[in-house]
Amino acid sequence: MKSYKQTHLQYLETESIHVMREVAAQFERPCLMFSGGKDSVVMLRLAEKAFYPARIPFPLLNVDTGHNFPELNNFRDKRAEELGAKLIVRTVEDAIEKGIAVPVKGELSRNRLQIPTLLAAIEEFEFDAALGGARRDEEKARAKERFFSMRDEFGQWDPKNQRPELWNLYNGRVTPGQHMRVFPLSNWTEMDIWEYIGQEKLELPSIYYSHERQVVRRGGQWLPVNDLQPPKENEEVQTLNVRVRTIGDIMTTGCFESDATDIHDIIAEVSAARVTERGGRADDKVSETSMEDRKKEGYF
């Protein structure tokens, strides 16, 4: 007797690919947000599989905050080239110069400044859909996010006015000015991502693995030391074997001590972990609903 069963990773892969094909079919000008981070590495793999042997039918878009880890940017450029994909990069630096993004004094992270930069890029290229790698298990405000998430003319998300989403039927209709954020990885957990990276033997930026780095202890976490973020007077710079679990702005992405040098070590570490991955990101700690607030403004 033959068994027609899917493993959980096959199920999730099937679902995500269905979503990506819907995007390619329902929208005129979609793009895929690709940072080089682990979730977007999985996104790229799924897009590759969804349309194979044809090339990925949309460009890759990245908002460079100027606070990106250099390892990440190098990896991003290399992957795009390998796939023969078109890569569009828009920088926060540029957006500040043009007056689109306005920095506030004392604000360290450029998370907030990413928002107007991204919205300007979406407008510039008239993208009607932007595929992102956000997952529902990351954060409470994401738990109710749809696969197809509508944004109004101001790029804003209205959590109270979301379209019901049933079965695998996705309503991608937008009017001019609106656009759709689409999240094919909605149902994946952090562990699924790591397992898939292991199963598919996907290459990752080196900072996900253990490496030596100068760090300081600040706000209960190890923060990387660099030109943007010199140590404060009373802080002691230490050199430790660290890695990152999730990558955001270099100013707020916490590192943690780890000797994990390959994917199997990481999976073992994640299964033993006692804090969520975003627990390493100071930007989420501001208030109970800080993610909800940023999402409403147009964050990923």
Binding site: R136, E139, K144, P159
Partner: peptide
């Protein structure tokens, strides 16, 4: 599960929340 501010204020779940465990 009730992550949205309006849900916390009202103390009720107003939407479908997806939760994951293994």
């Amino acid at each position: 599960t009730d992550g949205l501010r309006s849900e916390r204020e009202q103390g009720i779940t107003i939407d479908v929340a997806y939760r994951y465990f293994a």
